[in-house]
Computed example of a mutant assay.
Amino acid sequence: MTVTPLAAVPSARVAPAFRGRLGRDARSGHYAVPRRYRLHLSTACPDGLRIAVTHSLLDLAEACPVTWLPAVPDDPDGGHTALRPLYEASAHRYTGPALAPVLADDWSGRIVSTHAPDIMRDLARGFGGDGPSLYPDDTEAIEWLCVSNIDEAAQHAGRAGADEEERAAALDTLLAALGALERRLAGRTWLAGDRLTAADVELWATLVSLDTVHRHHLDAAAVHRLVDHPALWAYARRLTAHPAFGAHLDLDGIARRHHAHCRGLEAAGSAVQILDWAAHAAAGTDRI
């Protein structure tokens, strides 16, 4: 297996700095008033992509405007300089990176939350209105499966510093998770019940990352084993053709962000694309 070094810039996930919540009434402090709040998102970031899709599904363009950020953060510490004033207004002498995503309160000029799962739930709960009900009871288990068993396992399976046994174990975990989802999706359209939910948003963004980011650090044989889940990838194609999903897919931005932040090694699997994401997104746009 040939390997080519990518940029050696840390890409470790950072714990959220702010976890305020939107409430249902004025007593909560952060009451869900239309046009009071603003999202700051980069769709090249998996969490930003998840929130952007949720925002579109709930049709919140008027109720909660979005400021779109560049794919690659421009601050040397990995943050966005445009977000620095919000962070400094929200925490005295804040010295950490000004990371996206951010849900900000335009009335106070302060950050409400930087925690993507909370933001998605609060948008649905506070502003959902007549939009789809995105959070049935079993979404949390599926979200956990996506993050822990797919995303983290994929990272470990392609980690340059890991030994062969550790990478093999991570690949087994990844394939087991994909197999469970393959069986769940056989003969059904959605992951949870009979309608689109947040679990579908979570899994779709995870599959995007698996193909556009993590695949580049796996060998070709491993990628071919990932491909061998026809129901799962047909599901990914179908969601990509949905305007609320495909319209936010910034493949060039994802690639630039990956190369700017990745510390791993490029492997033979980089040449084995699983889906033609751009073509499926364009097919959905053509139907609008």
Rank of each mutant, 00 (worst) to 15 (best):
H224V: 00
W204L: 02
P230M: 02
A44N: 07
L191G: 02
R215Q: 10
L39F: 13
A281S: 14
Y135E: 08
T81K: 08
A91N: 12
G284Y: 05
R215A: 07
L171P: 02
E62R: 01
A176N: 13
P34H: 08
P73K: 02
A283K: 11
L69V: 02
E266W: 03
A241R: 14
A283S: 12
H92D: 15
A170S: 15
P70K: 06
R195C: 04
L251E: 15
D286R: 12
D250N: 10
P34G: 03
L145I: 05
G48D: 09
A241C: 09
D219Y: 06
R125E: 15
A89L: 03
A124W: 12
P243I: 00
R188G: 03
D276F: 03
P101F: 04
V72D: 15
R167V: 05
A247H: 12
D211S: 11
C45P: 03
A98Q: 11
G131R: 10
L103T: 08
S11Q: 12
A26Y: 12
A82P: 01
E62M: 00
L265V: 02
R159M: 04
A221C: 06
T139P: 04
T189W: 06
L226I: 03
D130R: 05
A160P: 09
R110M: 04
L207G: 12
G79S: 10
R195D: 15
G23D: 14
A89E: 14
L178A: 07
H55D: 09
R121Q: 13
H248C: 00
L175G: 09
R125H: 13
R215T: 04
E166L: 01
G109M: 07
S108I: 01
H115I: 01
A26L: 06
R238S: 13
R35P: 01
G29E: 10
G79A: 07
L58Y: 11
N149K: 05
A91T: 06
G246W: 10
P132G: 07
G253R: 04
L218Q: 15
D105K: 05
V227H: 15
G131M: 06
D252A: 08
C262V: 00
D219N: 11
W204Y: 11
P243R: 08
Y87F: 10
A98P: 07
L178C: 10
L86T: 01
G131H: 13
G128K: 07
A8E: 14
Q273H: 08
H214N: 09
P85I: 02
L196A: 09
V213D: 02
P65M: 05
R35I: 01
A282R: 11
T197V: 03
L41H: 14
S11G: 04
L86P: 06
L22C: 08
C64V: 12
A63W: 04
A61R: 12
R225Q: 12
A52I: 00
H259S: 07
H92K: 05
N149D: 15
W107A: 08
D151W: 00
E143F: 05
T285C: 09
G126C: 05
L6A: 12
D118M: 02
L275N: 03
T285E: 15
D151N: 08
R263S: 07
L178K: 10
A241S: 15
H229C: 03
P5Y: 07
A61E: 15
L58D: 13
I254E: 04
Y87C: 00
E88C: 01
P117H: 03
W144C: 06
D47T: 02
A221L: 04
